[in-house]
Amino acid sequence: MSDKKTVAVLGNFTDPNKIMEAAAQVHQSGYTDFDIYTPYPVHGLDKAMGIKRTILPYISFGGGLFGLSNAIFLIWWTGSVDYKLNIGGKPLFAFQFSIPVMFELTVLLTGLATFFGLWFLCGLPKWHSDLQDDEGFQRAVDDTFVLSIFSSDKRFSLETTERFMNEIGADNVRRIEA
């Protein structure tokens, strides 16, 4: 116990309406380093928590742009610079015949950028969490909403935060030490 430090205060919720209200209250009280673990995305909860809109669409767009420009360059350079092959007098490069491959490579690179961008933004894969031994936390992927306020938050103070959690209706408010 001696070398362990409280990393977070956790509280459970089961009602989606209650967790929405609680999220808004935590956000309005000025906490920033908190999270809510839910078994499925609760609509509007991200807004209530004051989460800023993700930059993922820009990553995807960048991927798409990269795919598209590479496709154009690939088709143009291979067909009309490096390996000129006259087939039935067709032009060596034209956008008409390039559209299918341009489209596919745009989609492919957008998809890859979205997929890897998602895990990058989520900070995954990460196979360890300080909260992982808490039984309630484990049930967050099953049927419980778990609110967690981390001790790294500058407004965090054990007693106040615990009292606050109880006030906003959290059940089984508990400390996590690691």
């Binding site: 999270d35 989460i51 993700t54 993922l56 957008t110 998602l118 894969p125 360890h128 992927v141």
Partner: peptide
Amino acid sequence: SLGWTGSMRNWHHYEIAYMILAGL
């Protein structure tokens, strides 16, 4: 599972990613 926790902060990115991939 890549260590998925169900964090709402992750779900937020996740839902947008789902939408983008569906749109693609």
